[in-house]
Simulated scan of single mutants.
Amino acid sequence: MHGPVSSGWLLVALCAATGAYCLLRMRSRVVEQRRAAGGEALMGFGMAVMAVPAAVFTPPGWVWTALAVVFGGAGLHALWAARTGAGHLHHLIGAGAMVYMAVAMAGTAGHGHGHEGSGTPLLTGTLLLYFVAYVLVAGVRLVPVAAVPGVAEGAGWGDRPELARACRLSMGIAMVAMLLAV
């Protein structure tokens, strides 16, 4: 990503930590939580790779293509899963945003700082609006988390709903930051 090196490394750390926590959530006893955590782990680690500051390391062009293919596959998986419920639509939009950013980064890989003077594309603006709204809603939902009977006593790291919400909120914030840098 283009931008200050220190904020890039903070995004890398946030996304990698979130991805690692989502891997822990994959040990949950609830099948749907495991599935969601797997997609979120992929998203977290993919975002960490994309957030590495361009001033420090510029990956070869094939990396962006590989990320676009991986997240295109994740998007197809989310689309298939969305037919059973709306809960996977967010994953579909997130995967689409990752494909969009990978393609944008592939286009700017050899051109310095990218879109200077071209303005904000409509798709970037639409994705920004979606993720800002998602962050606001997720933040509101996080504040009054009520204790779920029976969960707190014997719950492992994978079964803590408040931590899963915080994970999703942090990835939403990171997505907003990354879209602003595209």
Rank of each mutant, 00 (worst) to 15 (best):
L14T: 15
R168E: 15
R29Y: 04
G8K: 02
A166Y: 02
A37K: 08
V52D: 07
V70K: 05
A152I: 09
P144A: 00
L136N: 07
A48Q: 02
A164S: 11
G38D: 05
G75T: 00
L163W: 12
V99H: 05
I173H: 12
T84R: 13
V151K: 14
V148Y: 00
L24F: 03
G139Q: 02
L163T: 07
H90W: 04
L76P: 10
E153A: 09
V31K: 13
A41Q: 09
G87W: 00
V56W: 07
G158K: 06
L169D: 11
R34E: 07
G110T: 13
W157D: 11
G150S: 08
W157T: 04
T120W: 07
P144W: 00
S6R: 03
F71Y: 08
Y100M: 03
F131H: 08
S28Q: 11
L142M: 14
L136R: 08
F71Q: 06
A95D: 09
H88V: 01
A147C: 08
L89K: 10
H111E: 14
V63W: 05
Y100Q: 05
A138Q: 13
A174C: 13
G39N: 11
L67F: 02
A74F: 03
R83I: 01
R141F: 08
A36Y: 09
W9R: 08
T120D: 07
A13E: 13
G117M: 01
V30D: 15
S28G: 13
G156D: 07
A166D: 02
H2T: 13
R165I: 05
A81L: 12
R34D: 11
A81S: 14
V30M: 10
A36D: 15
A152C: 07
L76Y: 10
G61M: 11
L23Q: 12
V145C: 09
